[in-house]
Design a protein around this nucleic acid. Structure first.
Lengths: 348, 348
DNA sequence: ATTAGCACTCTAATTCATCGAGTGCTAACA
DNA sequence: TGTTAGCACTCGATGAATTAGAGTGCTAAT
């Protein structure tokens, strides 16, 4: 139960088994390891060690006379080792060609795709979330007799608009006043600070055309608070079909469904075991995942940040025998780049 | 080669074969038909007829001693018959609960999902497309020193906005003038009417702060014309896995990929054989489909309209043995309902 | 402590026989 | 002349039996 129950040789062998299994997806036998490693041990010796490893729960046999495959505990050990090692060279992601002028959602969709293509696993990316800054600017305009357009600009130049339908028009003068009022009272406030109370007070202040003004303010309130729901972009879901252990109809169908619905994927980012390790990278192996349908998968997530607590998540979902090393490198690399791109985009 | 090469009995038998195959997915034999129909014919007689039908190309044998399955020509005959029949009772789609307040894209996504659930096939819905009406209202606002927000409202109250970054600020007075100019010169024009020439003229007219104004106008032009790319919403792609004839790894992977990319799906709506039949419903069987990966599928598309040439497309993609009748009913029903919903939403 | 060697186990692949649904054809029948 | 009964034949699907081979555990020798 303590951290050092594995001596060096067992560690080497375990790693060799896992690495080999990652490549082939087939149970690996003693003979293979005997050749694969530079330990110069015979298959018999390996067999003994493997027997031990099995007893300790790091590997298991699918059936009596097959080779061994890593157990969840084995994978966990492996991943923890990887995490502990000094950072790998972060191989620059090749040709990250995204014109910055495109909208954020395009960028994120692109990122998801790029990552999927690069890793051959399914990917998900969530839009940056959090206190989207403060209100910077508000404007109401008469569009026609029955429609008023409200535009709200938030810090980070995020624009929201909402068309408000009104019974009777508001004349230009009153509109000017309303605009003044809105800007002076709301500018600088963050969204959570603007609650129903604030709106109520506003309504009172502007109380002239009770009904119309009330409608308009409700509209503004809605404009401000809406769209806060989490957008999730996915890509590469067909990659599941590339791995035999996931591609049987039953499993594949469930997985694909989860990705299509997206709803459940939220759990991958809200869950967040408290354990914030140095890199901000989380790995869920098999049953560790908060999503039931992924019990035969591994999930690697990373959080990217835009400062001020505005965060998003990137996730890669693949078979348990995923190439953790490559995946984590990709994520690390992406994390920083995404940071850059979005910060720039934000200013545009 | 003429329309009447099939006598009544052959027609009945062919229909019976197809209908049976739609249900079971298994080749159907003479004995089955003999019982299935009320023709009171022995299996031997049926066999003779089937032999004829095969020779004529309406059905075929997967291998020598199996039953028959419909050929593409057979399916074609069947759906043409269906189309010709007086409209079926359009079974009202149950509980079409969509709050109208939601954004159009939400509605469409919902529609896609609903349809997928109802039919058990994969579905796609495109956003209404076409001359999105004329420009109704334009407004530029100073957000901060280096950012100007341009808001354009189109007929149908479609709002577009774009943040324009400028080197030096424009003072309020000039801004007012610019707004006036923009509104007087562009309001009432439709998007295609606003070309580069128009913008050039505008630039000249407003020529005061050459550079800044130029930047701003470019921004406006971009805001107006952008976002014209076709959005496609899909749902129910996992349904492919329900049909054995489509669910082998190879095919399924291709299909799912096509749906994930969405790009190619555009062909389903641009293609449009000229033949506008009464219902506006198109059926592509097998190779008739403009998309290669769907050569083992059937595709049924319908066009919905919001008047003024604003159109969108709904598509259902499933195995060739899809339940054409049900699918077409669903589409017809949806077509009208979608019409209503969107028209209302448009006014909101 | 390591290893060679051997008996043993279990899966995957292969072969083979069998079954049965379905056909085509012929001859009898109304 | 159209319909049907009957029969021989075809061919995939099913399942049992066999085999091949990878891998193990154990024992005895080094």
């Amino acid at each position: 139960m303590n951290g050092n129950e594995l001596d060096e040789r067992k560690t080497t062998i375990l790693k060799a088994i896992i690495r080999n299994y990652l490549e082939t997806g087939e149970p690996v036998g003693s003979r293979t390891i005997s050749k694969y490693t530079d330990l110069n041990l015979s298959s018999a010796t390996i067999r003994n060690e493997m027997s031990d490893l099995e007893e300790m729960g790091y590997i298991l046999q699918p059936h009596t006379s097959a080779g061994r495959i890593p157990s969840d505990k084995g994978y966990r050990f492996y991943v923890d080792q990887l995490m502990a090692e000094r950072d790998h060279e972060v191989s620059q992601m090749k040709e990250f060609v995204i014109e910055q002028t495109e909208k954020v959602d395009r960028v994120l969709q692109q990122v998801a795709k790029l990552l999927a293509v690069n890793t051959n696993y399914a990917t998900m990316v969530t839009a940056p979330q959090g206190n989207h800054g403060k209100v910077k600017f508000i404007q109401l305009s008469n569009v026609d007799e029955h429609h008023i357009l409200s535009v709200v600009v938030l810090d980070g130049n995020l624009v929201k608009n909402k068309m408000i339908t009104v019974e009777e028009p508001i004349d230009n003068e009153d509109m000017l006043k309303l605009n003044m009022l809105l800007n002076t009272s709301l500018t600088g406030l963050s969204i959570p600070e603007i609650n129903l109370g604030t709106i109520a007070i506003l309504k009172e202040k502007a109380g002239i055309h009770s009904q119309v003004v009330s409608d308009v303010l409700d509209g503004v309130a809605e404009a401000i608070s809406e769209g806060e729901d989490l957008q999730i972009y996915t890509s590469g879901v067909t990659n599941f079909l590339k791995y035999p252990e996931l591609s049987d109809s039953e499993r594949a169908s469930e997985l694909l469904h989860t990705f299509e619905e997206k709803q459940e994927l939220v759990n991958l980012i809200t869950d967040k075991l408290g354990d914030e390790n140095s890199t901000g990278i989380q790995v869920y192996i098999g049953d560790e995942s908060p999503i039931q349908t992924m019990k035969d998968c591994s999930v690697v997530t990373a959080t990217y940040e835009l400062g001020e607590g505005v965060k998003g998540t990137i996730g890669i979902i693949g078979p348990k025998r995923m190439d953790y090393e490559n995946v984590m490198d990709n994520l690390k690399s992406l994390k920083s780049q995404l940071d850059d791109i979005l910060k720039k985009a934000k200013e545009t």
